[in-house]
Structure formats: C-alpha cells, structure tokens
C-alpha cells in the first residue's frame, strides 16, 4: 500500500490580482513522504509562489491544498530555507539556529539539544559562537539550513538556497544536503535554476511552464544512492541532465531568446 500523500493539491491556483490571470495553476500535485522534489522552470513560472503557498505565507486563490492533511500554515514541523541566508546579524550562530525554536517557546534544554544536533549536521559546531558576518557565504547558508533542520521538520521547503554561491560550494552543499536527507526523513520541495543540481539531488523533478505556471513534466530520477561526486560523471546522470535541459528549453517562452 502506498503511504498517504504528505502534500496534496487539487486544482490549486494563485492570482495576485483578483480579476487578472492566474500566475500559477490550476495545478494538481501529490508528494509522498520522503520524496525529494525539485522544481525547475523559467523565471516567472511561479516556482517560488508554489513554495510560498505550501508554506502558508501565501493563501491560494482557488483549489485545495493540504499538508499532512491540514491547511498549510498550521504545520509546526514545516521549515523554509530562503534564497538568502537571512540570518539575524546581531545574534551569534548558535542563537540564530535557535531563533525559530525560541519563537515556538521550546524549552531551553530542548533548544540546546536541537541546536547542537543541527549544527553538527551542517558541520559548523566550531562556529557556534561566531557572528554571521564572520562567516563565508557557504557557511551562512549552512547555518540557515541548520536553523531549518532544528525544527526537526517533516517538510523542508528550499527556495534556490544555493543560488548565490559559487559552483564548488554549491556542489559540496548539495552533497551535504543529500547526506542529511539520508539520515532524516523529511520531504523536500527544492526550487532551483540548475538542472544539474536538480538531477543530482532529487527523486523527482517537476518542470514548470509559465503563463500560467503549470506542471509540464513530472519526471522520476532513479539514480542509485549514495550519490556523490562520482555520480556527476555517470552516463545515466549526464543523460538525465541532457534530457531535463532539453525539456526545460522547450517550455521557455521564445521571446526570452529573441535578443
């Protein structure tokens, strides 16, 4: 028997202007627990909007959306990793990791335990007392990830979290993220612009088409685990990257290439 879906949307649509066209949807999507779903698509296809809807930051205009069989925004174990690290500059790394737990009034002992565990997962235990400005861009992103993981989430939403980093750092963080995913059971929705990153990380890739945002392709990625730097040279991996790239190119609006 297949497990019940963790994220379930039916004819979900979002319009920012009540009379205007929908920026996203209507689309239907079901995500099972433990899946790592990447969302690819040209700019303006509503990738981030979809993530914000699932997070509860935005309310849907039409359709239904349930996360763990509840309306989004009611879930305590849903975490969001933003495009920027969005660390609070006046707090040390340790306190930054605890921020969301503090908001939820988690007890001090429990906070400390989860904070130390999360910092261990992103291998930044020795930076606990540093301030964000003393860290590199990659380290800041790892702290941001630790802050999300400290919630011990069931659903992890990642909005281009490695977009601003250089390729090496990006690859390393991707591998770390997979290693953490192997140890923890969260379900990921991962928005990215990088086909290679999507293929490397995911069990499943959604390619969105714009105007309005809708799912053009829903592809399973059946590369074996554990995935590491070897994976990036495997023929199957390269074939998938080429295939997804071609599909992505096909949904890009032509005018983007006119110039």
């Amino acid at each position: 028997m297949t497990p019940p879906p963790l994220i379930h949307c039916q004819a979900l649509a979002k319009r920012f202007d009540t009379t205007g066209p929908a920026v996203l949807g209507p689309l239907s999507l079901t995500v099972a627990p433990g899946e790592f779903v990447s969302i690819l698509g040209p700019s303006g296809c509503g990738k981030s909007t979809l993530l914000r809807l699932v997070s509860g930051l935005l309310a849907p205009s039409e359709g239904t959306l349930r996360v763990a069989d509840r309306p989004p925004g009611e879930l305590d174990d849903l975490a969001y990793v933003f495009q920027d690290a969005t660390l609070l500059p006046w707090l040390r790394v340790a306190a930054n990791v605890e921020t969301l737990l503090r908001l939820r009034r988690v007890s001090t002992a429990e906070r400390t335990r989860r904070r130390d565990a999360a910092l261990g997962l992103v291998r930044l235990t020795e930076k606990a007392r540093a301030y964000p400005r003393q860290l590199s861009g990659g380290q800041r992103m790892r702290v941001s990830l630790a802050r999300a993981l400290a919630l011990e989430p069931r659903v992890l939403l990642l909005d281009e979290p490695f977009g601003a980093l250089d390729e090496m750092t990006r690859d390393h963080l991707g591998e770390e993220l997979l290693a953490i995913h192997a140890r923890q059971a969260w379900t990921a929705l991962f928005v990215t612009h990088s086909v290679a990153e999507a293929v490397f990380l995911s069990t499943r890739i959604l390619v969105l088409a714009p105007h309005p945002g809708r799912i053009a392709h829903d592809l399973a990625v059946d590369l074996p685990y554990p995935r590491n730097h070897e994976t990036r040279r495997a023929p199957d991996y390269l074939r998938l990257v080429a295939d997804v790239s071609a599909r992505l190119r096909a949904v890009e609006p032509a005018e983007d290439f006119a110039a």
């Binding site: 930051l57 969001y80 933003f82 609070l88 908001l103 939820r104």
Partner: peptide, 13 residues
C-alpha cells in the same frame, strides 16, 4: 528586511 519579516511570519511569531 522583508526576508527577516518572512522568516518571523513563517515561524508564526
């Protein structure tokens, strides 16, 4: 920063 406000709203502050 808007991003920090989003973070706090996500955290249901």
């Amino acid at each position: 920063e808007q991003a920090h406000l989003d973070l706090f709203r996500m955290g249901r502050a």
